[in-house]
Nucleic acid binder design. Structure first.
Lengths: 339, 339
DNA sequence: GCTGGCACTCCTCGCCCCCGAGTGCCAATG
DNA sequence: CATTGGCACTCGGGGGCGAGGAGTGCCAGC
């Protein structure tokens, strides 16, 4: 009973603080929530919660604000995922359905998520490593240059310029193309190496270096450290929390411009189908330890191919963000399934 | 002589204000620049400059700051383009040379430009309308779905999913593909319509709707309002000018997230090879009228295919920004020429 | 264990006043 | 007539001060 009430108090503090952005005091708490006890009792509970590290005072004689640990407890034990209204779900669905290609799906998703959550949104392109090759194209750009275009079954299209060691004619390019096509069609990118290994040896010695160069580029394109792409949107929303980031919006914006950083972020949360939350200092990126990350993985059926999430101040509407992230991830998964 | 000195004073005010971000007074001016006259004289000149609208005082008993008109005069009449050091040019060149494809060129350029100017950088993809088709690919995704991939001679690769009205077999797709390929190879996108007009009629009645659907998508992809893409970078740099944008960083960030807005911006400056500057209120986008835009067009030889530029506070190092924008545009043009 | 009461803390806000940078004007000068 | 030194004036910024008030911790009583 006592424990229950303490948790209820913590929840109330988190909710009030998130909505008002002001330290919440015992009196206001008693007024806004039907806790059934006096403010003095709440004060005792608050003192206990503070001892346990869930809340803190910015200064004596101010109300309490949740600590990272407090938010953590709130997320883990107090908040269900707020279900989205069916109208919202329909809006998401119809907005994403209008997309004309994968790029469009990604950019629509990120805009949508940013708009719903009013936070910064991240959406990762489906990983090539997890995809199979649907088609390969080699287009001759000149005597010694060709453009390699790779189309994955997730709808992803990657291009790469290949510098050929010797001049290669149009018909030779055609032969290389159809041979590579047959060798790779349907092959998962991660297993590409063995699948094409023996291909150069099938060609004349004079063509072999060129074929090898093309294959090298192909493998490079599907290398897992290189191939990841993340789109970002809604950075304007950060500016609305100037108070939180006080003077230093800059490092946060800078961190968000680094692909590597974004990958690290989404890497942490995209391994599971359930929504994962990283709060404040739990965040692996130093410059973002004043922010929280709500994210999850998405993919076709059981295999997750990428992540999606939002970044915002620790003072965030977690249930809402979790619901939105989860919904968008579901729709992304569905779209991938349809292909 | 008198006129000359007044202009020198204006230049000094602009330079000092840009570097210190503080209203500049007559005394400081006399100390920092060898103007050869007393502060009282400068005061007279300043009063005249103020009458003419080139400078203003934030409040009585403060120094002067340049107005938009003042910056305009500075840019038009007082500042040459600051030449970049050869080390800088080499840095740019080597940084861009490492790019593996057009996407990479674009993202490297925007990062580079943002870094050099310490402003927000914009780089537009080469316009499809101005490009010729190098290759077309149609990949079957399912009974009634195909992926259309368009490769332009600028290195641009665009993809689009086509929903086919009826099921089409693999070999039919192949036939459509090779016919479209021959009809479009080398054709400029803007002239695509006439080039493919008669193609559907060459096919059986059963295939005709599908061919028409593919062609419709192709034309849609190259529609000039749809096909433009702009990449943005260095938004973190905006946060460093919090003082300028005082409370309202948000609308600026929001405006910069809108493709349409960015297109309008670059559209204004990308029509010429020389660098164009739009200062403050000259800016066509309302939310950006507190900012300046420095931009130019780039392209192959004489035909400009896209724009590049930076956005920053009106209090900006114009000579430096102009030099950087111009240099990056030149390198982009050169890279396009090489293809 | 809960409650009302109470003393205490300390932040916030408004107020005032001083300081000084910077100005405009004026009379003198070459 | 442009330039200059001198001078009075303006006004924003910052520091100090004090009242107000929200919120706390503690205690004694139930």
């Amino acid at each position: 009973m006592l424990e229950d009430r303490r948790l209820a108090v913590l929840r109330a503090i988190v909710e009030d603080y998130v909505s008002t952005n002001e330290p919440v005091g015992s009196k206001a708490l008693v007024e806004r929530h039907r806790l059934g006890v006096s403010s003095a009792t709440i004060r005792n509970d608050m003192a206990a919660l503070e001892d346990e590290g869930y809340i803190a005072q910015p200064h004596t004689s101010a109300g309490r604000i949740p600590t990272d640990l407090g938010y953590r407890a709130f997320v883990d034990r107090l908040s269900g995922v707020k279900p989205m209204s069916s109208a919202e779900r329909r809006a998401i669905s119809s907005f994403l359905a209008g997309a004309v290609d994968l790029d469009d799906v990604m950019s629509r998703s990120v805009r949508l998520l940013a708009q719903i959550t009013r936070q910064v949104a991240l959406v990762q392109y489906p990983s090539l490593v997890q995809s199979a090759i649907l088609h390969l194209e080699i287009v001759r750009l000149g005597e010694t240059r060709a453009l390699l275009v790779l189309i994955a079954d997730t709808g992803r299209v990657e291009q790469r310029v290949v510098d050929l060691p010797v001049a290669v004619g149009d018909d030779d390019i055609g032969r290389i193309r159809s041979r590579l096509l047959s060798a790779t069609a349907g092959v998962t990118c991660s297993e590409l190496g063995p699948a094409v290994e023996s291909v150069p040896s099938e060609f004349d010695a004079s063509l072999r270096p060129s074929v090898a160069a093309i294959i090298a580029t192909l493998l490079e394109t599907t290398l897992d450290t290189e191939e990841q792409r993340i789109v970002l949107g809604g950075t304007a929303n950060l500016a609305r929390y100037r108070d939180v980031f006080s003077a230093n919006l800059e490092p946060v914006l800078e961190a968000l411009e680094e692909q590597v950083v974004l990958l690290r972020l989404l890497g942490e949360v995209s391994a599971a189908t359930q929504v994962t939350v990283m709060i404040g200092h739990e965040n692996p990126v130093e410059d973002l330890q004043g922010t929280s990350l709500v994210g999850t993985g998405y993919g076709r059926g059981e295999s997750l191919v990428a992540g999606v999430g939002v970044v915002g101040p620790t003072r965030m509407d977690y249930p809402g963000a979790m619901a939105a992230v989860s919904a968008v991830a579901q729709y992304l998964s569905r779209i991938l399934d349809e292909n």
